[in-house]
Design a protein around this nucleic acid. Structure first.
Lengths: 238, 238
DNA sequence: GTCTATATGTTGATAGAC
DNA sequence: GTCTATCAACATATAGAC
């Protein structure tokens, strides 16, 4: 067998320089997003990253910590974008249904829009975020809470303020279903247009708007339904 | 240590009579629904069923076949209920939005309602169905397609007929998001009232109606949004 | 920092006694 | 039919050379 093509360049330690950590993070995002926590083995991750299991454990200590590191890296900028968008909406003059929709958009858009800041032009990072919400292991649930919990609470409060006369039970159900909409827009079988098929991003843009419209309409339908039962139709969001 | 309490009753083969198969099916539904395919081990299942791994493999041949058997057992009656409910809606005189909502209800209600026919008064069977849609392994995806695919296609056609002037792209997205709503109403963190807290089932009933309302409103919002762009507002479902 | 080699446990599946 | 005993393959994690 011939030696590896680039083997003659340097006499150093075999594998590429010091970007092993970065390659591991990329690999874990990719594989974990596809297969979930339990179905993802350290072997698979380290093979994709072109390194060894022990190298991964040297850098991160354990499988769980590797996942947590990848998530914090991906989620921190996403959280920032969401909170900034929310602040803009709350500082603005919008009211009622328009505001509800704007808040949901502030939650959805940073996740679905192509964002170089997230160091993820493509899809794996989004899928990872979505998988957190459907993967059963306690480990994953804990990380999800840790990474996304506070921001989710912020959005919950914002929506609670934007909808007057909130019925707690329907509101909680509505929030969960809205989250289901967002998660399934990613983890389900809907095909997102890729960049070459949709260079202007207009198809993606339309999909984002549709998703926001779906969630907002559903959420408001719940509140309206409740209020129409109490004989107060249409006055739920003002 | 004292002998097992019932050990003196018979001289037969140690474990209970011939309902091992049934106990295994119950156990796999319960555990798989909670943890997903890869995180569920044969040992965990067989321990819960009070038998051994080899016994399970004797009856079902493999882990995958055990899951498939459990699913077919649970899904067949669910499919029947859904198709019957759909037939009733299609034979009826409803039109437009009302019919769209009725079709969605025919899909949702048999899943969420307490149904003795499904041999599952409680929750595990529903959770299992929901998990099929979020569990990543190819095995699971294949079983889901096999078990639920045909009925899903039937409902898709029914909805396509009920909504005039369908925009294919938004329609597909809308269907997927609707499915996300249903799946998340089960697999998410919404707490369903249990039977003792809600003996009349009225809370559960209200939740089902809310879920249908959410999905119908979201789906129609997508179609209406599209049509209002083309200058034809409100004429999408008639 | 990265590797090879290994430790230690668990997995799904099978063999064979009863 | 059900069990105990066992298999080979896989899992995560660590030890130690370089």
């Amino acid at each position: 067998m011939p030696p590896r093509p680039s083997a003659a360049v340097t006499l150093e330690t075999a594998q590429p320089p010091g970007d092993t950590k970065a390659r591991l993070l990329d690999a874990v995002v990719q594989i974990f997003a596809e297969r979930g926590f339990h179905a993802t083995s350290m072997r698979a991750v380290t093979q994709l990253a072109g390194t060894s299991v022990s190298s991964a454990n040297y850098h991160f200590g354990s499988k769980e910590e590797l996942l947590r590191a990848a998530l914090i890296l991906r989620a921190a900028p996403l959280n920032d974008l969401r909170l900034k968008a929310l602040a803009l909406v709350e500082a603005g003059p919008s009211e009622g249904k328009v505001r509800v929709r704007a808040i949901l958009e502030a939650f959805v858009r940073p996740l679905l829009e192509a964002r170089p800041e997230l160091k993820d032009e493509g899809f794996p990072g989004r899928k990872l975020a979505a998988r957190l919400y459907v993967d059963p292991p306690d480990v994953v649930k804990a990380i999800q809470q840790e990474v996304f919990g506070p921001v989710t609470v912020r959005f919950r409060e914002a929506l609670e303020n934007a909808i007057v006369d909130v019925d707690p039970e329907n509101f909680d159900l509505g929030l969960q279903l809205s989250l289901g909409v967002v998660v399934h827009s990613i983890s389900g079988r809907f095909i997102w247009p890729d960049e070459e098929e949709d260079p202007s991003g207009s198809k993606r843009e339309q999909a984002i708007e549709s998703i926001v419209a779906f969630a907002a309409s559903g959420l408001l339908a719940l509140v309206e339904e409740k209020n129409s039962e109490t004989g107060n139709p249409g006055a739920s969001a003002q």
